[in-house]
């Protein structure tokens, strides 16, 4: 499953990167790659069952502490 996920992201990278390289859009390529890696890490965390906080629950807890 993890391998499949990495493969999918690799595919996404290969989909987009050659075009950017051909046009010499290096900054775009960098931002794209970083965001893609962030997405990959988060997806892998989700996949392996790491308990990422629910965003809205996080805000709810924060507000309850403040009030």
């Amino acid at each position: 499953m993890i391998v499949l996920m990495i493969l999918i992201f690799l595919l996404l990278f290969l989909w987009e990167a050659p075009g950017l390289m051909a046009q010499e859009y290096w900054r775009e390529l960098a931002v794209f790659t970083i965001l893609l890696i962030v997405g990959l890490v988060l997806s892998l965390l989700l996949l392996t069952g790491v308990k990422l906080p629910y965003i809205e629950s996080f805000w709810l807890n924060l507000f309850e502490k403040i009030v």
């Binding site: 996404l12 987009e16 775009e28 390529l29 794209f32 965001l35 893609l36 962030v38 989700l46 629950s57």
Partner: peptide, 19 residues
């Protein structure tokens, strides 16, 4: 090019937005 990775992020956020 950013539409793809941000779309992925959106997907991740959608999975972890509310229980």
């Amino acid at each position: 090019p950013l539409a793809i990775p941000i779309g992925v992020l959106l997907l991740v956020v959608a999975r972890r937005i509310f229980p």
